[in-house]
Amino acid sequence: MINALVAVAMIICAIQAIRVKKLLSAALWLAGCSAMVALMLYLLGAPEIAVIELSVGAGLVTVLFVFAINIIGDEKPVTEPGIPPLIAWALVILSIGILAYLNLPLLSEVIPDLAEIPMASTTIWTDRMLDVILQIVLIFVGVMGVINLISDSKAKEKNQ
């Protein structure tokens, strides 16, 4: 029951995030969607991932969005879509249909119980070392991006 409620709230937040005209409201709706995803992950038995998603997805990304929108300024909204809506709808329905056709038969009726789960830290540090290295590299790239964002805002202030 609660899963269905959270799922509905998640999709409503996602639709609102792309529907609202103001960019700032869209960023806040995205944060709400992220929080709902975190709640769903917690209900699914992944509390660590839920905490990380909540702090990074709903916290850090929202702060960055608000910061960037503050620099860019709210442009006047563009009403006409990028490609004709009919084609967009057709492509979306086609892709969702293929995904549903491939995935829905694989689902089991009930989720198996969590029996013996290895420690999260052992799995991450021993079996998936490559992932950790990739994450470190990615974080350096992110630092470069943040430096870019911040230095630009400073240059703008200097110009003014």
């Binding site: 660590e48 990380i52 999260a120 991450i124 079996d127 992932d131």
Partner: peptide, 10 residues
């Protein structure tokens, strides 16, 4: 479980 979760982390 842990494979899915570590991939989700990445």
């Amino acid at each position: 479980v842990m494979v899915g979760q570590s991939m989700a982390l990445t």
